[in-house]
Design a protein around this nucleic acid. Structure first.
Length: 204
DNA sequence: TGCCAGGCCCTCTTTAGGGCCTT
């Protein structure tokens, strides 16, 4: 698979439209099933982290006070990923925070997101849960550190994506797994996935 | 004052409701 950037945000809540802000971001560059580069930083957006989020993520208000500004971190991570296509677990969440944070520094996203949650629902329907941690356990993938920290979750999402790409090669005979193909798979109804992959296999 | 995310996906569905997933 060509390079993709798997990203993960930690935030103060679920909705930038409700005033929530990012507190940490990680991005790992995945190339041919290997993580070849990593970026990770806490960020200070000048907002208070609710106590239950501090407990969930282990990211405290004291840690954020000493972190670089959200503007600086978002500039850095935007430079880090460049034009490489993005992937996240439940990408609708990370996409809305990415767009909201870069809009504050007058940048716009240059690439599309693929979603490992939508892909896992289609390619691993037998998994008992499609939460990131549950999928990592289901597929016997290595744990990468403390869950709900950005770098650990980005690393685990990257290994999940590698596993899903392996499934596409071994189960469906897909030779070249591309970001564009992942977007196609996640965009069709679950019932149409087999049909899409059979057609794709024939067209190779 | 009272409201409070939103998109996907299933089903006892489509004139709707509720669970899942992200923090």
């Amino acid at each position: 698979m060509d390079a993709v950037a798997v990203i993960d945000f930690e935030t103060t809540g679920l909705s930038p439209a409700q005033g929530d802000r990012a507190t940490e971001i990680a991005a790992v560059i995945l190339e041919n099933g290997k993580v070849v580069d990593r970026y990770q930083s806490l960020m200070n957006a000048g907002v208070r982290i609710p106590s239950f989020i501090e407990e969930l993520t282990g990211i405290s208000n004291a840690m954020i006070r000493q972190a670089p500004t959200a503007a600086n971190v978002m500039r850095e991570v935007s430079d880090f990923v460049g034009d490489i296509p993005l992937v996240a677990h439940n990408a609708s969440f990370d996409c809305k925070f990415w767009d909201a944070e870069v809009a504050r520094i007058n940048l716009t996203r240059r690439q599309e997101f693929a979603c490992s949650l939508l892909l896992a629902r289609r390619l691993l329907p037998q998994a008992p849960s499609h939460k990131l941690g549950a999928l990592v356990e289901f597929a016997n993938l290595p744990l990468a550190g403390r869950a709900h920290r950005a770098l650990a979750d980005a690393e685990m999402a990257a290994s999940l994506l590698t596993h899903l790409a392996d499934e596409l090669r071994s189960r469906y005979g897909i030779r070249q797994v591309t970001h564009e193909l992942l977007r196609k798979i996640q965009g069709v109804p679950k019932a149409k996935v087999e049909q899409l992959l059979a057609k794709h296999q024939q067209s190779q």
